[in-house]
Design a protein around this nucleic acid. Structure first.
Lengths: 249, 249
DNA sequence: AATCAAGTTAATGTCTGACATTATAATTTA
DNA sequence: TAAATTATAATGTCAGACATTAACTTGATT
């Protein structure tokens, strides 16, 4: 991330190394070769990989290298490893499927920043959902909103219902990446938030807006849906700011 | 050194139990111990960790174990490792920093979906950048755009310049999460794209729009900047669609 | 025969030591 | 001073031995 090269438009940079994100050291080739092996053997979820030492022999590398590669996969949740049971596939691995490990560094001060990246994703998600959803999905969204309101008005813990509501929208978008990204960003947010402030009841004031959002999405009115979501996000942001300026931190 | 045993006057510890450090199996204990070491030494971003072998000695474990732990951190982006330069902190490690490993599963069919989540982030990033940037950052952005155009018109490989341009915008947003997220989504996209289609020269047609984008951001005109970025994203999307409907797949 | 206990064994987990590789630091040379 | 060369210190890799553990096998008991 050096911006020192801002001025240097090196003339000799013809064959500038493409700074691909190197996985780890260079276990990438091993992982790639392994992917091919797995695909060729048509291994699926739950199937067993050969022992480390055999993989090493087959690929002409040391066992330690295979080990590090498999551990990297383990850290990504792609395989599970077990003393006697060996290494098993926990997820589908093929040359066409790439598992991108995103690591977000979240600092306590960055509650707002976290919210800032969530905001456009949520807004876009409802916009897409309004355009893409099936009729049934629209009904589900409206129903979930009703549930959420009921729980909320009963004074119970509404977080589960809220989560289900938003999941329904993400699902209606037809793009699982929205769910994956937003969900995990949210988890990170909560992890930060919970530490100093206890349970997060953030966003309570936005709940009455949710049925309106649901109706807009179900009508296929993406513009209105996006506007409502924008308002919701603004309210949450205001809450975050209030808290951070609040009692102490 | 280890002051863990300083307080423990265990009643049954008559024998000089040298095996004070109970290993729980994986490398988490090593990472934990390392975190303590780092915090106690008040190491910050960019600072150097001791060599693997010294860490191993200090923690009474083998070098391989330390290695695996550090590689895990590398995969999370917490440290960078380099032959002679050793291991350096790339990010703050403390109790207040939470490192959230996001794993996105990207399939070949989801080029469009990947683009769909990148789109709102890019647009929001330029909007925020236009609002938040310092004057100097504005100048850098314009300069990068000029560089990009120069490289492009010279018929050279413009990907590096393009990357630097967008990084400048993300940096100007003041929110590192934009850079982190978009960058990695983009890497995932490229990784998918390269496999079947060779080098990605995607987005070439959008380059002439970049100076316009840079001017808008530098002027602080977030609305215009967002519009231009929106157009860029649309063009890229159209290209993706064309390719997928193209020759074969 | 069915069930539980003990032993076997095949895999990962770990340590050690050696050597290879390489990016930085030090030195020499122009 | 600056460029080229050599040294050096760290990671990268390999190989072999041993430890640990959990699935598998076998045997004893009811």
């Amino acid at each position: 991330m050096t911006d020192a090269d801002a001025t240097s438009k090196g003339p000799t940079s013809s064959r500038e190394a493409l700074d691909h994100l190197e996985q780890s050291g260079d276990s990438r080739d091993v992982l790639e070769a392994l992917s091919v092996m797995i695909e060729r053997a048509k291994l699926g979820v739950g199937d067993r990989l050969p022992p480390e030492i055999e993989i090493a022999k087959k690929l002409n590398v040391g066992r330690s290298k295979v080990r590090e590669a498999l551990i990297a996969w383990q850290n990504m949740g792609i395989v599970t490893r077990n003393k006697k049971a060996g290494t098993r596939l926990a997820a589908e691995v093929s040359a066409n499927a790439i598992h991108m490990p995103l690591t977000l560094k979240l600092e306590a001060e960055s509650l707002l920043r976290t919210h800032a990246v969530r905001r456009p994703l949520e807004i876009e998600a409802v916009r897409v959902a309004a355009k893409q959803m099936t009729e049934q999905q629209g009904l589900i969204i409206v129903a979930r909103a009703a549930e959420l309101m009921a729980v909320y008005e009963a004074g119970e813990d509404w977080r589960g219902a809220d989560h289900r509501f938003h999941s329904a929208i993400h699902e209606a978008s037809g793009n699982p990446l929205f769910e994956q990204l937003i969900r995990q960003i949210q988890d990170g947010f909560n992890a930060i938030y919970e530490a100093p402030f206890g349970q997060p009841h953030l966003g309570q004031a936005t709940i009455p807006l949710h049925p309106e959002l649901a109706r807009a999405v179900a009508k296929g009115d993406g513009a209105t849906a996006a506007k409502v979501m924008e308002r919701i996000m603004e309210m949450v942001e205001a809450e975050v700011i209030a808290i951070m300026e609040g009692p102490d931190v």
